[in-house]
């Protein structure tokens, strides 16, 4: 940011101070404040990057009304851990031509990061990652959820995620027949 120092207006000084800070303050829905490195926030979240670039970051805590303090703490924790981790070779070389794997596998620390979360905390984090446009964190959390579904029957999946079966018996039978191709290798 180019600032004409000759003017010396208070407003300008405040802006400079804001631009010079290397952290941003985020405020959760329940009013708690969290500091996160501006660089990591801008790199990992398209929404925060947009807010930083657009100058809509509030020094006293940018309101993120959709995100609770526990989820925001996890977001900030993830950003900090990400900033300190060295990306593996697999992450750097991403030239996929005829690759079968659609996504980059989570790093070991990322696995541990989501494995320690409770069921609700995991879903709070998915929602936060989606809201903040954090592609990588969304990848990691969705990977975790897909792992919880893998190799399970519909009944088992319903149990894991508390999904209520609102089909009638007839409807369910119809689906099974329509999707026989998907069921027959059970």
């Amino acid at each position: 940011m180019e600032v004409d120092k000759g003017k010396g207006e208070a407003e300008e000084t405040r802006k400079v101070a804001e631009a010079d800070r290397d952290t941003v303050t985020l405020k959760s829905s329940d009013g708690k404040l969290f500091e996160v490195s501006k660089e990591a926030a801008a790199r990992l979240s398209t929404v925060l990057a947009g807010m930083i670039a657009g100058g809509s970051i509030d020094d006293n805590g940018t309101d993120l009304k959709q995100i609770g303090s526990e989820a925001l703490e996890n977001v900030v924790d993830y950003c900090n851990k990400h900033a300190n981790s060295i990306p593996s070779a697999a992450l750097i070389s991403s030239s996929i031509s005829f690759n079968t794997a659609p996504f980059k596998e989570p790093e070991e620390w990322e696995r541990k990061f989501v494995d320690r979360l409770s069921h609700d905390a995991l879903f709070d984090l998915v929602e936060a990652a989606n809201f903040l446009g954090m592609e990588r964190l969304l990848d990691v959390t969705c990977h975790k959820i897909s792992e919880m579904m893998k190799g399970k029957s519909p009944d088992q999946i319903r149990e894991v995620f508390n999904i209520k079966n609102d089909y009638t018996k007839e409807e369910l039978e119809e689906i099974r027949q329509e999707l026989a191709w998907a069921f027959y290798d059970d």
Partner: peptide, 29 residues
């Protein structure tokens, strides 16, 4: 919690499964 997620996030999750397994989620609800 999972059924409350928006479609694009659910797609993001199902993309990580092989197609027959993803299609079987039709039977959930």
């Amino acid at each position: 919690r999972i059924s409350a997620l928006p479609d694009d996030v659910l797609v993001h999750i199902l993309l990580r499964l092989l197609t027959p397994e993803a299609a079987r989620t039709s039977a959930l609800s």
